[in-house]
Design a binder for these strands. Structure first.
Lengths: 221, 221, 221, 221
DNA sequence: ACTTAACCGAGACGGTACGTCGTGTCTTGCC
DNA sequence: GGCAAGACACGACGTACCGTCTCGGTTAAGT
C-alpha cells in the first residue's frame, strides 16, 4: 500500500499528476525544473556500478556522479542516502516483471513464478537484490523500500493466485496466505543468500511439491 | 579454544593448544608471545560495536581498537580483514547453543530447536547474525565463515534428528534432508531479514505443521 | 549618482543619468528597466556582510543575494566579479567626507583631516577599507577601484592644501607632494593594517609634527 | 617577545631543545615521530604556489598537498588554517635577512636596511608578504603571526640602531622609536600595498631625508 | 491592445575545494 | 617479536559556493 519512495523524490514540477479541481494552472514551482536526463543517468550509473564492484558497500557516490556526468550535489539533492538511491534505481528497473500466470492450477502458477524469481536471483540483477537486502539490515528505510517496491506488489498478486486456488478447491478455505508464501519463498531466499546449496530453478518445483501438495487435504490453519 | 580466523593465520605462539606433555614439538617462537588479553578485548569490542551501530558497514576498525584499548596494528596483525574479525568474534560467541532435543518425535525436535533459533534472532545476538549475512553478500569469505561456524555444525545435528525420524518411520526413507531443512528454516530467515511480518516463536510451529505433517504420507522424493 | 562598477557595464537603461532635456540621445532600450530597488538592496547587503564576516574572502555572493532578497542572476548580470561589486558598494558609501579644512595653516589642515581619516579607520567603515585593500592585493581591479574612488579624489584636495602652504611659505617651493603625503598617511595606514600599535587620533598630530615641522626650514627637495 | 607559532606546531619529539635537569631522557612522545621531510615539502610547495596563482585566496590546500606529495590530512594535522600555513612558510623563508648595518650613522643604517626591504617587496617574496597582510585583515591570528615573526624581530634590531643614534647624539634623547619607525616604514608599505606610485629603492632615501634630517635639531618628543 | 525585449525571483545544474573520517601501512620506544 | 601510540598517503565523504542555465512572471516601449 505504502508505495512512496524512501524519501519521496516526488514530483515537484513537470507534467505532474492531475491537481484537483483547478484545470487551468498545473501549478509549477518556480525555478529551473529538475533535469529528467540527469535523474535517469544517475539511476542507470547506479545499477551499472552496483553490478560491477563489491556490491553495495563498495559503491561510492563519487563514482556514480562521475559516471553519470553529473555533479555530486545533484545526487545528494535528490537522494538522502546511498541506500535510497539504490532502492530507487532498483525499483525503476523492477517495474513489470515476475507476473503470475493463470494456468488454472495454483501449483503450476506458483511454480512458474518462483522459477522466474530464481532466474532473476541467478542473473546480474540478483546482485542488486542482495545488495538491497544486505544494506537493509543496517538501514530500516532501505529495507522498507525493498518491501514497498518489490515484496508487496508481488505479494498482492500472489494473494490473488492463491485465492484462485482456494476458489477452485485446491487449497483449503481459510488458508493463511502469508504463512504459505513465506514457506514457499523463504527457502529460495535462504539458498540465494547463504549459498550453502546451489540455487537451481528446479528447487522451485521441489518446494512447491513439499508445501503445496501437502495442503490440498491437510489443514493450513 | 583458540579460534583462528577466516584466512587462518595459524597459531604461531601464545598460550595455545596445550603441548606440555607432548614430546614432539614444544617449539615456541622467540619474542613476546601474543597477548591473550588483547585478543579477547578486541573480539569483545567487535561484538559490542556490531550490536550498536549500523551493523557491519558502519563498524570501523579504528573504533574497535580504541574501544579495546589496543593499537590498530594489533588488530591488523591478527585479522586480515574486517570480515575475518567479525567472523572470529561471532564464532567465539557462538557457544554451544541450539542443541536439538531428542523427544522421540521429529516434529517436536525440530519445532523446539526452531523456536530456540527464533529466540536468538529476536535477541541482541540476532543483530550480529544479520550483520554477518549482510556483510557476506559482498564478501564471500564472511559468508563462508557463517556457513562453517554457524550453519554446518547445526545442520549436522539436524541431519541426525531427521535420520531418527526416518528410522522411526516418521519421514519417508530417501528424504532429501537439505530440501526439508531449507524449507523449514528458510521461512524463518525470510521473516527475520525482510521483517515484513513480525517473527514470532509460534511461526516455528506453523512451518513445521505445514512442512512436516505433509511428509509422513506424501513423498519428499 | 549612478555609480558604475569597475569593469564598467555602462548604463543601458533605467532611470539613470537624467537625459530629459538633452536632445542628443533620449534613447531608452526597450524591455523592463533595471530595478533600482534591487541594485541598492544588493549594495546595502554587500556592505553589511562585508562588515560582519571575515572580510572580503569570506564574503559570498550567494549570501548577498539571499540577504538582499534577490536572485543570484541579478547580481551576476550587473557585476562581473565579487571585487567589482565590493568596489561599487564601497564607492556608493564613500560620500563626501574627509574634506580638508582651510585654516590658514598646512599643519592644522592636514592634522585635522588625518584625524578624520583615523576616525573612519577606527569605525565600522574601516573594515570595508581594510577588506578592499586586502582583496586588492590579489585583484588589481579592486585595488584600482580603491585608488580611483578613495585615494585620488582626496589626494587632489590634499595637493591644493599643500599648495596653499607653499604659497604661504610654510612649505618650500618645489616640494614633492606625493612624497610628503605618503610620509604623512603611510604611518597611519601601517598602524591601521598591522595593528602593532593602537591607532589613536593623536598619532595624526605626532606624524604631522615629525614630518611637517621639519619641512618649513629644511628642504623637501 | 611572543615568538610562538600561530598554533604552535612546536617540537613534540625529535632532537628538541634541552630539557632542564634531566640529562638522561630526552622525553620523546610515543608513536611515530613527525616527518620532517613532509613538513619541509609542504612549506616549500606553499611558497611555490603562493607566488604563482592569484595570491592567498586562490591558494588551495588540496593543491599544496598534491604538489608536496602529501596527504591532505597531514597538512590539516599540523596547521589549523591556510593562514597559519602561509605564515609558517613565510617565516621559514624569512630567517636571516634584512639585518641592520652599523655604519656609524643612523641615517645610513636605516636607509640601507629600508632599501633592502624595498628590494624584497619588489621581488617574488613581496607577493607573500602582501598575501600575509591581506589575509591578516580577516584573520587576526595571521596578522599576529606576521607581527611576531616579521615585524618584531626586525624592530628589535631597529630599536638598537636608533639607540646608537641617540647615544651618538644624532637623535634627541627620549625619542619615541615606534613613532619614528612607523613614519619611516609606513610610507614604503603604503606604496607597496596601494601601488599608486611606483615603489623605487630611492624612496628609502627620500623618506629618511624627510624624517630623520628634521630630527637632529627638532624634538621628536 | 498587442508584441517584443529585457528584467526579475527562484532554484537546479556541472563543478571545485573544503575539512573530516577511516583505511591499511609505517615507524618509533617500551616490554 | 608483540604491543601502544600515532604519523603517514590515500580516497570518499557530505557541504558550501561558484558561475551558468532555465523556468514563469513582470514591466515598459514600440507598434
Amino acid at each position: 500500500m505504502a508505495q512512496n519512495h524512501v524519501r519521496s523524490a516526488g514530483m515537484r514540477n513537470g507534467s505532474n499528476g492531475r491537481n484537483g479541481s483547478n484545470g487551468t494552472a498545473p501549478k509549477r514551482t518556480p525555478g529551473r525544473p529538475r533535469s529528467e536526463e540527469s535523474r535517469q543517468s544517475i539511476l542507470r550509473s547506479t545499477l551499472k556500478l552496483l553490478k560491477q564492484e563489491g556490491g553495495f558497500p563498495d559503491l561510492c557516490i563519487e563514482a556514480i556522479a562521475a559516471d553519470a556526468n553529473v555533479g555530486k550535489t545533484t545526487v545528494y539533492r535528490w537522494w538522502p542516502t546511498k541506500a535510497a538511491l539504490v532502492a530507487d534505481a532498483f525499483s525503476a528497473s523492477a517495474e513489470q516483471e515476475l507476473q503470475f500466470p493463470n494456468t488454472g492450477s495454483v501449483y503450476t502458477d506458483m511454480r512458474l513464478q518462483m522459477r522466474g524469481l530464481i532466474r532473476i536471483f541467478r542473473s546480474q540483477r540478483g546482485k542488486v537484490v542482495a545488495a538491497l537486502l544486505a544494506g537493509g539490515q543496517s538501514d530500516p528505510e532501505l529495507l522498507e523500500a525493498y518491501r514497498d517496491r518489490f515484496l508487496w506488489p508481488r505479494r498482492r498478486q500472489a494473494y490473488q493466485t492463491l485465492q484462485r486456488g482456494v476458489d477452485r478447491g485446491e487449497l483449503p478455505a481459510g488458508s493463511n496466505f502469508d504463512r504459505i508464501l513465506d514457506t514457499l519463498y523463504g527457502p529460495i531466499l535462504m539458498r540465494f543468500l547463504i549459498r550453502h546449496v546451489k540455487l537451481e530453478e528446479s528447487f522451485a518445483d521441489e518446494v512447491c511439491g513439499l508445501v503445496l501438495k501437502g495442503l490440498d487435504h491437510k489443514a493450513a490453519r
